[in-house]
Design a protein around this nucleic acid. Sequence first.
DNA 1: TAGATTGTTAATCGATTAACAATC
DNA 2: TAGATTGTTAATCGATTAACAATC
Lengths: 224, 224
Amino acid sequence: VTGLRNLSPATVTRLPHYYQIFKTLHERGRGYVSSERLAGLLGIAPSLVRRDLVGVASGVPKVGYAVPHSLRSLQEILGVNNTKKAFLVGVGSLGQALLGYRGFDEYGLRIVAAFDVDPAKVGRSIGGAPVLPVSRLTGLVRRLQVMVGVLAVPADQAQEVATMMVNSGIKAIWNFAPVTLELTPEVIVRHENLGVGFALVSYELERRLTPTSGSDQHGGGPCR
Amino acid sequence: VTGLRNLSPATVTRLPHYYQIFKTLHERGRGYVSSERLAGLLGIAPSLVRRDLVGVASGVPKVGYAVPHSLRSLQEILGVNNTKKAFLVGVGSLGQALLGYRGFDEYGLRIVAAFDVDPAKVGRSIGGAPVLPVSRLTGLVRRLQVMVGVLAVPADQAQEVATMMVNSGIKAIWNFAPVTLELTPEVIVRHENLGVGFALVSYELERRLTPTSGSDQHGGGPCR
DNA sequence: TAGATTGTTAATCGATTAACAATC
DNA sequence: TAGATTGTTAATCGATTAACAATC
């Protein structure tokens, strides 16, 4: 009931979805929820839900999982006990959307400053983060103990900025630019690719709409 | 070499990453690439790369996969042969970022129109899509044969808009709003949750930075 | 030819499900 | 108490890897 460490990667990917669901249920005033209902919302088996929630929340037989308690527990695991400071580079429309996204704190991401080359953007403050000139990044990473770099620059500048971030001491890069970055293997890189989400939607549409001979119509369950 | 249908879900999730990589390699003028190099970039085994690419591109022993040919083939599988029309609702910062994202076409997503309740936003055109009043959505879905709804509205309006979309005939919802939607099981729903990406970065950081007794330092490979 | 790299199969691994005893 | 739902284990499934023959 402390961190992500002991969980499997598969469980870790589902945790934010559980969080989302518990938050929604909480807002709707539901006090308890069963593994069966959660399973339905996630498109997985109830037993897997119960297993995922070991070490997150304890359920009550015949009643289910207490929504407020589980929600608080998830907040601790994902956010409170797990906060990482980050710099975001590139204050275009995507960068601004990311900065404006209230709720990264809840997942443990604290964007302490944003950077851009455009002097017109420098000086403002978006979503609580000041926008600074990129030239100042290098000097601030170690001083503020920033671990994560969020890359929201155009594709043709991503490699350059990524290299600079890593040289400045950043340990992990969360890349939203549509390019493949080449960095030393010690650096953690995650390429966020919007195409992935849509490819899965598309795949599911094909599967359900193409009338394959004599097979069941749809596999059921949402694709999370 | 036609669609996504015959591929495994796991392969489908990687396809956009392959596409990205091939595009980057193409821009850098590389003519061929080996499964080993691709595997390194994706953090998977070379044999899995070779298996993924069966039905996508054919490699040449001792040479590798032809970059331009593989790229074109991926474009066909993901985009050309697979195009779905979509409506986007909610032209806030995220909605605008999504509309401005050149490259959805390449993944088969064609956003033909955007919708917003704010009259100030209506009438403009962003990323080639006209912004219309939400009231006009229902009448246009069947007329234009729109399959997909992209939800970029605030959380508290998402359920309402989603229900409307489904009643209008939309078959799949790609949801960027931070809420859990409740819809009939025939509807395909994908909840895009930015927390997932960051949770995995965070997980990897913990894994590598926490010095567990006598275990290997880092598992290596990027986390895609 | 020799050697590197593909395509493919069998073995391994991890994740998911089904079943059931424990529990409120 | 009876019944529903959890926690946990064993069985299943699918995805990944390793190995190797085929090929250029």
